[in-house]
């Protein structure tokens, strides 16, 4: 499947004028100063920019885990802040997958059990969840690690498990915060390649926060942020030209 075929006209994510500030001893500090951003369904969108510019904060707002102060933000046409707490949880459970920098695998569960969790949350039986988890683990090259404890895997392997967990229930949107920054170059590329490939297969939209120039080529578009605003949106080729 090519990038252009996956990119449909439907909008997966739309942010208009999103603002958010945090309280500090010196009064409120604006962190998001009016974010305008959208992503089409199936698109791979990177969020890049200097440290502290608000990337993680924006991702948390998009995921529905942090309230915005102003502006609009909808995922799959739905505003999560208009839902009550339970509905919002149901929405995330069905539609959003998560990949973290720190993997966040549950250490007392096996690899396959970790991957099963989103399916179990969505009401699948233990056995059915296990079957699907094994299939996704095979596609990230970890079929033989299903019964291992996550702590016995390398960082790259753990992040591949996390990818399997994020994608196993085919969510429409996957949010990733620095998924490769704890990994060396080779493992980082492998993780990004798998993430993109599986997202394409399932038709999921990917929003990836990253610092990692080496993986820019995996993006369809790159949104550059600075000081709480999106300052430029470009293709990987354009971004590479700007960097020189």
């Amino acid at each position: 499947m090519s990038a252009s075929a996956a990119a449909s006209s439907a909008t997966a994510l739309r942010c208009v004028g999103v603002t958010r500030s945090f309280a500090s001893s010196a009064g409120p500090v604006p962190v998001l100063r009016g974010i305008d951003l959208d992503a089409r369904e199936g698109e791979v969108l990177f969020l890049v920019g200097p440290s502290g510019c608000g990337k993680t904060t924006l991702l948390t707002v998009i995921a529905g885990l942090l309230r915005r102060d102003g502006g609009e933000c909808s995922v799959l046409g739905e505003d999560q802040e208009a839902m009550d707490k339970g509905q919002a949880a149901d929405f995330r459970r069905a539609n959003i997958g998560f990949v973290f920098q720190a993997y966040n695998l549950i250490p007392t569960l096996s690899v396959a059990e970790n991957v099963s969790v989103p399916l179990l949350l969505n009401g699948r039986s233990w056995a059915a969840a296990r079957r699907d988890a094994e299939a996704v683990l095979a596609s990230v090259g970890l079929a033989d690690k299903a019964d291992e404890s996550p702590s016995r895997l390398s960082g790259g392997q753990q992040q591949r498990v996390a990818i399997a967990r994020a994608i196993v229930h085919a969510p429409r949107l996957i949010v990733c915060d620095e998924p490769t920054s704890a990994l060396d170059h080779k493992n980082g590329e492998e993780v990004m390649r798998l993430l993109r490939q599986l997202a394409r297969e399932k038709g999921s939209t990917l929003v990836v926060v990253t610092h990692d120039h080496r993986i820019y080529d995996y993006a369809d578009r790159i949104a550059e942020m600075d000081d709480g605003r999106v300052v430029r949106i470009s293709t990987p080729a354009e971004a590479a030209r700007h960097d020189q």
């Binding site: 995921a63 339970g86 949880a89 149901d90 995330r92 069905a94 998560f98 966040n104 549950i106 969790v117």
Partner: peptide, 18 residues
């Protein structure tokens, strides 16, 4: 110890009742 993992479960959409 498991606070972080419970938070992950809640982020992934676990309802409070669960």
């Amino acid at each position: 110890d498991n606070q972080r993992y419970f938070a992950v479960l809640r982020a992934m959409g676990t309802r409070d009742a669960t």
